[in-house]
């Protein structure tokens, strides 16, 4: 037996380079982009709609990319709200990647946008491994998913900038203490900002915007 040294060729480098390219393009147009991740049904779309409404009241122009395995339901909600949007169907891929986003950006009026929300595929595992070129990463978890979501998917929570605990208005009904979710998050992500919110009632929207730097 003998060993052959092959040096070090990172096969994921291309993904990082593409993400860097997206970031350059967006910042050259003065657009602040956010990668919104979270489980299926956590309320990502509703939250983006509420954030967009508040940002538009401040005179900012908001666009969106809707990532889903199939269908155009989220995309249609953005369009109905008057938000320029592009739909990405990943088919069977469980996450967005920088390459898909690069193409989606071609379909957006970048000259007319200040803020871009990229809604990732509903999944708490794979999206964490694929940077898209956004300025910050937001993860949305709803109280209806249970108190243990951070402990069950620690890696994605360790890597994100902002945690939104959504549907807090249902916490009593489902018997979940949102503070437990926030405490778990604080342990693995001391620099992250956790916010209790309800995309339905609008609770926490202002706080989220300040955490995003608005």
């Amino acid at each position: 037996m003998h060993e052959i040294n092959l040096g070090y060729e990172d096969i994921l480098r291309k993904q990082l380079e593409l993400a860097g390219k997206n970031y350059e393009l967006l910042s050259s147009r003065g657009i602040r982009a956010f990668n919104v991740m979270g489980a299926i049904g956590s309320g990502k779309t509703s939250l983006i709609l509420k954030l967009a409404e508040a940002l538009r009241e401040r005179g900012l122009r908001v666009g969106a990319i809707a990532g889903d395995v199939a269908g155009d339901d989220d995309y249609r909600r953005f369009i109905e709200a008057g938000i320029p949007a592009v739909n990405i169907n990943t088919r069977d891929q469980c996450h967005l990647d920088a390459h898909l986003v690069e193409h989606a950006l071609e379909g957006l009026p970048l000259d007319k946008l200040d803020v871009l929300f990229i809604e990732n595929v509903g999944n708490l595992v794979c999206p964490a491994d694929f940077p898209l070129g956004t300025e910050m990463e937001i993860v949305v978890v709803s109280v209806t998913e249970g108190e243990d979501m951070v402990r069950k998917h620690p890696k994605i929570f360790a890597q994100t900038d902002v945690l939104v605990v959504n549907k807090v208005d249902l916490a009593l009904t489902v018997g979940v203490d949102p503070k437990r979710i926030v405490a778990d998050y604080g342990k693995i992500n001391p620099h992250g900002k956790a916010i209790l919110a309800s995309a339905k009632s609008g609770r926490g929207i202002g706080e989220i915007l300040s955490a995003l730097g608005f």
Partner: peptide, 9 residues
């Protein structure tokens, strides 16, 4: 990263 660094032959 994910990289191939060596082979045993």
């Amino acid at each position: 990263d994910l990289a191939i660094v060596a082979l045993t032959v």
